Amino acid sequence: MRTRNKVLSILSVTAMSAIMATAISMPAKATDADIYLLNDLLKPIYTKAQTANFANQKIIGLHSENYGYELNKKIYRFDDLTEVFNASNNNLVTTLAALPTAKTPISEITGQPSTSTLIVESVNVISATAVKVKFNKVMSSDDKTGLTYTFNGVAVPTSKVTYSGITATLTGLKLVSSTNGTTPAYEVLVKSGTTLLSKQNIVWNNVVTQNSLINMVVAIPDVSVSQNGVPVLPSIIDVIYKDGTAGKESVTWASVSTSTAGIKKVTGKIDGSTVTAYISVNVTSVEYVKDITLEYYSILSIYTVNAQADSSVARMSLNGIDMYYNGNYSFKLSTLLTKGSTVTFNAYDAANKLLGSKKYVVLQ
């Protein structure tokens, strides 16, 4: 089973590279070829441009069962895409034409709404002057352009609408706290173009509003990432409100450096709340330059140097001279060296970013 999984992983990485290399050069919808985590279809984890990075391709290929591929506003399992791609003789045009009939989008399989469908999940008062509208996804620029809001029959100016994550906050309103829980009621309409997305009558009770504020964030599992990698952080987190009920909120994480190994504590800002979310990112060290072997040819007075590299390494140099890629993450160079001297190996990723260096003493 382990051998089979390794073969499948290699096939997925190969397919990922071939698919993205072709997709990047093809004219398509703006979001075609975006990559999603199957357990979070609200926004892509890698955009089409980001999948041009070979390191990202390898992550997706090696863990393909966790990812989905966007085509025509629908998300398909990446493993299904790979299967159709292989059956189509590695022709992406044929693959994309066949995919909608050969496989079912993941959104339809799980019953989750398509990311192209905008749905209003809730409308809540957050203060005497503001209302929060929560949607089912992070809105695109086109979504925001088409959205309009009406409060008690009066259009809310766009200057009074602020978007963050999956919410829109309407400000500049006037609400009176209810003493009986039913009046006064305020009608809120949300439209996308001419389509009515939501019509709700809301009542503001200051005590209820205070109880609906976030009390705490449910513990978020730690995330691990290799050194210089990109951690996958959740965009939606679980929270407990002051009245004891549970819910979900969108979160925006601060940037985190993965250039050094160790556990990094990252803070997250929850939309419309002063409560801070925290997540630990465990950055594991990587030995980018591994086994080094030298062969000395006395007739020519040169060394042939072989170096094995980590799978994230796309280029390696020896004392500033590029080594030749020998396949299977191995690099080779024949050059003049002095016995007893110290040489430097530099390892780079596909974007030509320096990943790490290693000193080596020529002993033989």
Rank of each mutant, 00 (worst) to 15 (best):
T258W: 09
N72W: 04
L333G: 03
T274N: 10
E287L: 11
G244T: 12
P113K: 12
L197N: 06
F54R: 07
S177E: 12
T260C: 06
G272C: 09
S255K: 05
L354R: 00
S88H: 03
I60P: 00
N319D: 15
I202D: 07
G262V: 09
D271A: 14
L173P: 04
F345E: 07
V256D: 08
N326T: 03
T51P: 02
L37N: 03
D32W: 08
D310T: 10
T284A: 14
S280L: 13
S192M: 11
V362H: 00
F331S: 06
A30W: 02
L213D: 11
P27F: 11
E187P: 06
M26W: 10
P184K: 04
Y67P: 00
L318Y: 02
P44V: 06
T169W: 03
L189K: 13
I279C: 05
S88R: 08
A350N: 09
A23I: 06
S273W: 04
E295L: 15
L233N: 04
K353F: 12
K242H: 05
T183H: 03
M316T: 11
Y241G: 07
M1T: 13
N89K: 12
F151W: 14
S280Q: 12
Y186P: 02
K73F: 05
T162K: 06
P221Y: 06
T182Q: 13
P234W: 07
S17Y: 11
V7Q: 10
L96I: 15
G165V: 11
K199A: 14
Y241T: 15
F345T: 08
A309D: 01
I10M: 12
T267P: 00
G244H: 08
A309N: 03
L99V: 06
V223G: 03
K137D: 02
V154E: 11
L62A: 13
V93N: 08
S178N: 09
V190K: 02
A97R: 07
Y36D: 00
D238H: 10
A277L: 07
T14A: 13
D349F: 09
D143C: 06
D271W: 01
K332S: 14
S257F: 09
T342Q: 13
T101Y: 11
K43A: 07
M216R: 14
S64T: 02
A23K: 01
G262S: 05
V289T: 09
N152A: 15
T304V: 14
M1Y: 08
L336K: 02
N56W: 04
T260I: 12
S177R: 01
M16C: 15
K74E: 14
N124K: 14
I279Q: 03
T342P: 02
E65R: 10
T245C: 02
T167A: 10
S285G: 13
K174P: 01
A277W: 01
L170P: 02
Y46N: 01
T22W: 03
Y149E: 05
K339W: 01
P234C: 10
K58S: 14
V305I: 12
Y36Q: 01
N215I: 11
I279P: 04
N72L: 10
V156P: 00
P113E: 13
N39R: 02
K48A: 15
R77G: 14
V138L: 07
V7K: 11
Q112P: 00
T3W: 13
D291Y: 04
L337P: 04
T183I: 12
L336W: 00
T145R: 11
I35M: 11
T284R: 08
V133Y: 05
V313T: 03
S226M: 10
A351K: 05
L71Q: 03
